[in-house]
Simulated assay, not measured.
Amino acid sequence: MSDPTLTVLPGDADLEPAFDVRRDVFVDEQGVDEAIEIDGKDPDATHVLAEVDGVPVATARLRVIDDGVGKVERVAVRASHRESGVGRRVMHRIDQLAIENGLDRLELHSQTRVEGFYQRLGYETVSGEFDEAGIPHVEMRKEL
């Protein structure tokens, strides 16, 4: 498997490759309603897309939600590329973008089954479990 190519996409770019990954993971695999998944906030975000041999395999988006605070959302890695390190690389690129944009803290809602992934990246759990789109989540934060 080739190393992934990471591309930063503004919210007004062609986001269909990122949407394809998100649909595959969230809608098809996890059963999230597409009306919830495609939430209208994509134009307000910066997106990272990872491709391997020209095929989109992972994505995430970053939105500024307050002074110095960014929210990481829609982190998705196709099943075929999990455990390959591509998710970690996407998240490191999100960190770089946040720092480049003067953010001091990142927040995200993690599915509880992948909470350990974010903890290994320096995030701390700051809430109890809650439901989001029918899936158990926790809120997590990371100081930059």
Rank of each mutant, 00 (worst) to 15 (best):
E124P: 01
Y118N: 03
Q111E: 14
L106W: 11
E124R: 10
L121Y: 03
E124L: 04
G116N: 14
L97C: 01
R120A: 12
T112L: 05
L121D: 03
D95F: 13
E107A: 11
L121E: 08
D104V: 11
R113K: 13
H109L: 05
R105W: 09
E107P: 02
Q119L: 06
S110M: 11
F117N: 00
R120Q: 14
E115I: 01
G122T: 04
D95M: 06
H92R: 15
G116D: 15
G102S: 10
T125R: 13
L103K: 11
L121K: 07
T125H: 03
T125K: 11
D104F: 11
L108E: 10
Y123D: 00
V90H: 10
H109N: 15
S110T: 10
L103S: 01
Y118S: 03
Q111C: 11
E115G: 06
E124W: 01
V114D: 09
L121G: 00
V126F: 02
T112H: 07
M91G: 08
E107Y: 09
L97D: 00
R93L: 06
T125V: 14
G116E: 15
M91E: 05
H109S: 15
R93S: 04
L106S: 11
V126I: 07
S110F: 08
R105V: 13
G122R: 10
T125N: 10
Y118G: 01
V126M: 01
Y123L: 02
Y123H: 02
R105Y: 10
R120E: 04
V90A: 09
T112V: 15
M91I: 10
Q96E: 15
I94E: 03
L108Y: 07
D104S: 15
F117A: 00
Q119H: 02
E100Q: 13
E115R: 15
L97E: 00
Q96K: 11
D104K: 12
L106P: 01
G122S: 10
M91K: 06
N101V: 03
D95A: 10
L106F: 12
T112F: 07
E124D: 14
H92V: 12
R105N: 00
I94C: 09
Q96Y: 02
I94P: 00
A98D: 07
Q111K: 07
S110L: 11
S110C: 08
E124T: 05
L103A: 08
A98H: 11
A98G: 08
R113H: 13
V90S: 10
D95G: 06
R120Y: 01
E107V: 15
A98C: 12
L97I: 02
Y123P: 00
G102Q: 07
